[in-house]
Design a protein around this nucleic acid. Structure first.
Lengths: 351, 351
DNA sequence: GTTTAGCACTCACCTTCAAAGAGTGCTAAC
DNA sequence: GTTAGCACTCTTTGAAGGTGAGTGCTAAAC
């Protein structure tokens, strides 16, 4: 059996209608709403074929048809038309992003926020793991007798700081010296390599003067460094899940929120390929994700620092719109980050 | 009508029972479960009195009795017995907090986590507003040609950093000089005062050499400073709300999550008094909070940097246990922060 | 050989109804 | 003052029946 034009049209109509209404689509509704020029009975015959081919399912014998994962996949790959963002949406993205483009940390959070607002789904943004990053700078900032702030900056521009309690009395010169020595020693080294070095031993033998100070600081330096390796995940629009009719059941909503807050979910994100990736329902290898669709995209800062952002929601998701929003967002992010300014659009013109 | 001993006993039993079961308490159940030595009929008479006095309500004519806000308040103030934490709970708190006590930022997050785990409620921890704080240190850390990290530290030890894109080419010496000049100029000034100063103008006239650099950095310096003034609110155990039977209705759960994510809620927290404060249901001036109870406590770092942590949940809350957990947690936090070490308990001994 | 009308059938959903159960309030007796 | 008894109230549960949207199949029409 092959997908002739009429079957295609019917499939398309069912997917679109179900995405909008969340209700199983019946033959009569279909022939009324979309001018098919054929009777409900004919549509029923076609539907039966489509079901046999694995594109549609039945929740129960006498309900309308619901698209399967295969149908969504087919829709996304072949049927879906490009969704042109409204000028209003575009300008909203531009304005909001440009307002914070100079503070990189926040820009990504704003992108996630925009994404959830424009799609009505739950969105996230993730900084990439810093496994391939190198340490650039170590500094200690004295606060009072027993408190200092440790600042670490990596090659890719990611910074972390943490406030440390110091058990031993210290002198500012010592701190400064320690920072210099540490910077000198670790600059250009892979973060992960530093973690595996036996640096406490090294220091103890090396610099007797500061040994107690160093001893007190080193373990915390390492755990700060470790924290730097963690990916960060911002969520936005978590409450949007309540807008979807399929999650009006408390158990479903709970299960959704639990699934996405699991550590496992971060791993799934990390392991996804770059570019705009759509994974639909049962396509997920992960059991917990099988009833959701996930769309992620990659953004690059300075063409190097890679992170991801995306949305998660029911398989019944407005794929065309969501894809367009994500594409526009990441393109805008990338461009802005590369040319490095808020007025990049003017600067970019060749003449 | 006065509260004789028997009424007290009945009230106490009703409150305890309802806190445990979330079901309206009937006279027969009461006489069976608690050995009252009186018949259901007598209990009914007393209940009618208690209702007239405002301590109990009826969801409908023939349901059992439910405690009113007034009853909870009375219970908390006069009836409630001190809940002695299990040794296991205590040691769990000690261990978890001691593990991170050297990194102040994380300790508070861990405290919130413990709180939600031990009480099964939604918890939060808030750093205090930095309105009364003073700037201590400004530094710029060069990353590459057009990126620097700005680090600000305040007197109270709070640090922030942000990654900045710089539009103009810079030299490291200039950055260093700028940091020195800024530190010199603003050190010891109130954060809020700096925000209201016309610092852009000042710089332009002062230091011509760095004017373009300064011009590029100043607005972002201010917005970073502004961000420093924000309180930070960590949440934990948000999903715990689903464990409460009264929130098995999706609308209720949604409304809870929305209420606590409103900006308004932060304001409520900021304006609460210090110490352990319990606010029950209708005692809240804020309309949205009238069906919840809120327990907050204050913690001090170095006896100075004040933040709050607490829980929010249904008025039917195990007040005695929650209060004990919060007290133990904050005491432990304060002590650890003051004496400034993980082995403070030994150091503190007089002999 | 398609297409369509007709019809029996299925299942979810809604309403109605009745019974069960927990609890109250009142009265009269102890 | 306390309690037993009883009528009454209101929720909850489950069964029964009707409705409506939809299907699958068959036979007739094109």
């Amino acid at each position: 059996m092959n997908l002739n034009e009429r079957k295609l049209k019917i499939l398309q109509a069912i997917v679109s209608d179900f995405i909008r209404s969340a209700e199983p689509v019946g033959s009569r509704t279909l022939s009324r709403k979309y001018e098919m020029g054929i009777s409900p009975a004919t549509i029923r015959n076609e539907m039966a074929d489509l079901e046999e081919m694995g594109f549609l399912t039945h929740p129960y014998t006498s309900a309308g048809r619901v698209p399967s994962t295969k149908a969504y996949r087919f829709y996304v790959d072949d049927l879906m038309e490009r969704y042109e963002l409204a000028e209003e949406e575009k300008s909203r993205i531009r304005e909001k992003l440009n307002a914070t483009i100079m503070e990189l940390d926040r820009t990504v959070e704003h992108a996630a926020k925009l994404l959830s607002e424009l799609t009505n789904l739950t969105s996230f943004a993730m900084t990439s793991s810093k496994i391939d990053d190198y340490l650039k700078y170590v500094n200690f900032i004295p606060v009072d007798e027993d408190t200092v702030v440790l600042v670490l900056v990596s090659e890719s521009g990611k910074a972390t700081h943490t406030t440390l309690k110091i058990r031993v009395p210290y002198r500012e010169e010592h701190l400064e010296l320690l920072a210099k020595v540490m910077t000198y020693n670790y600059k250009g080294r892979k973060l992960t390599d530093i973690l595996t070095m036996d640096i406490i031993r090294e220091f103890e033998s090396d610099i007797a003067v500061m040994s107690r100070l160093a001893e007190s600081i080193m373990p915390r330096f390492l755990s700060t460094l470790e924290g730097m390796l963690d990916v960060e995940l911002y969520w936005d629009g978590l409450m949007n899940i309540f807008k979807q009719p399929e999650y009006s059941d408390i158990e479903k909503a709970k299960s959704f929120l639990e699934t996405i807050s699991r550590k496992k979910f971060t791993d799934v994100l990390i392991n996804r390929e770059n570019g705009v990736i759509i994974t639909i329902g049962e396509e997920h290898p992960d059991e917990n994700l099988k009833e959701y669709s996930l769309i992620t995209a990659t953004y690059a800062i300075n063409g190097k620092n890679i992170g991801k952002l995306g949305v998660i929601g029911p398989t019944r998701m407005q794929y065309d719109h969501v894809t367009s929003v994500i594409e526009y967002l990441t393109e805008h992010l990338n461009q802005a980050f590369i040319t490095g300014g808020e007025d990049n659009e003017e600067e970019e013109r060749p003449d």
